[in-house]
């Protein structure tokens, strides 16, 4: 059996015909296997959804109780049989509950890794390397200019700025699922124990992280705070909110943004960021190339991001590689939309 007989890109996403399911489908399907809770991967309206408990919970938080016909929670390492196909979930290290999906048929194994990172993250289970024949990888940061470095150093940079500008508020743009909680956890690890303030759109998901046993220290909603009280504080907000009317409640805010994109100056400047923090939930170039090599896969399929460069690299290493040209996945930070209601209540 050829790999493309098992998994094939179609309009709805990556389709497993013999197993009768799609992975991270972008339109409603009968049976969906979901890698993680970000909205471009986890959509509402499928018949049956197979995902980790955390991913299912996050979908419920976002879409309400009726987000799917039926759901089935799967643990890391647990194997599920769908037709002739065996499906196994492995930690992807991307956000809480994120999984790589190993799809096996007879002796052929394909790993759809979803979004992943091989860097340390105190808020989720570390990435697990899975040996396979075909590795499906993202390429969000698939250019050799993207090297993320140690996130703890970036948090130090933030704290140095807070110390230097005690009369200003620090506003950190961070995607509300995963990135925000990781930044908070890193701040706590760095010894910052003051209350951290949250934009309204961040509260629900952050409280959910806490309910899963992730300690984040004292968190307060920024809503209702007086301007002067916010001097010297740190507030986490969705990236889109940091350049909006919403920011007028802060005293002379320093606009920070926690993202892998912050490595490139033009990207940071375009967004009007004053304090770029290179903290990413995706693997950087070194992470992507090291992971591809370590899986032992002879064939690599590259999904969304900078496919060309990564495909070129794979070929230069003697690996068969091709872009999958899947439509509908993007960088979540670029697309996160804060609803008007959330903005108002924050």
């Amino acid at each position: 059996m050829r790999p493309q007989d098992i998994l094939l890109p179609v309009a709805a996403g990556l389709c497993c015909k013999p197993g009768g399911f799609h992975i991270d489908p972008v339109r409603p399907v009968e049976r969906a296997v979901i890698t993680h809770g970000h909205s471009d991967h986890a959509r509402a309206g499928h018949g049956a959804v197979l995902a980790t408990q955390e991913t299912l919970d996050m979908m419920r938080l976002r879409y309400g109780d009726n987000f799917a016909g039926s759901t089935q929670a799967v643990r890391y390492g647990e194997e599920v049989r769908l037709g002739d196909i065996k499906v196994k979930f492995h930690p992807a290290g991307h956000v809480l509950g994120s999984a790589q999906i190993a799809v096996s048929c007879k002796d052929l194994c394909i790993v759809a890794s979803g979004d992943y990172k091989d860097a340390r993250d105190p808020t989720c289970t570390p990435f697990e390397l899975v040996a396979c024949d075909v590795f499906i990888t993202e390429a969000t940061f698939g250019l050799p200019v993207f090297r993320h470095g140690d996130a703890a150093d970036e948090v130090k940079k933030l704290l140095a700025s807070v110390a230097l500008f005690p009369e200003r508020a620090h506003l950190v743009g961070a995607y509300s699922l995963g990135k925000a909680q990781r930044v908070i956890a890193l701040l706590r690890e760095a010894g910052y124990d003051a209350p951290i303030y949250l934009h309204g759109a961040m509260e629900k998901i952050t409280r959910y992280y806490e309910s899963r046993g992730i300690a984040l220290g004292e968190l307060r909603p920024v809503r209702g705070m007086k301007k002067a009280e916010l001097a010297g504080t740190i507030t986490l907000a969705p990236p889109t909110a940091t350049s909006d009317i919403w920011t007028r409640r802060f005293p002379d805010p320093v606009t920070a943004f926690a993202s892998g994109w912050m490595r490139v100056r033009a990207r940071a400047r375009q967004r009007g960021v004053e304090l770029p923090l290179v903290i990413s939930d995706h693997a950087d170039w070194d992470g992507l190339t090291a992971t591809i090599g370590a899986t032992g896969a002879g064939e690599v399929w590259v999904t969304h991001g900078q496919e060309d460069a990564l495909v070129h690299w794979c070929k230069s290493k003697g690996l068969a590689a091709r872009p999958l040209d899947l439509v509908g996945y993007g960088d979540e930070e670029e697309t996160e939309v804060v609803l008007d209601g959330e903005e108002g209540e924050a």
Partner: peptide, 24 residues
């Protein structure tokens, strides 16, 4: 020191020679 194709993609993306070199 680098693959010229990868340098080309990177320089295209970053847009500034010094910065591209510093990063890659």
């Amino acid at each position: 020191r680098t693959d010229p194709v990868l340098f080309g993609y990177s320089y295209d993306y970053v847009g500034d020679l010094s910065e591209t070199v510093a990063l890659m």
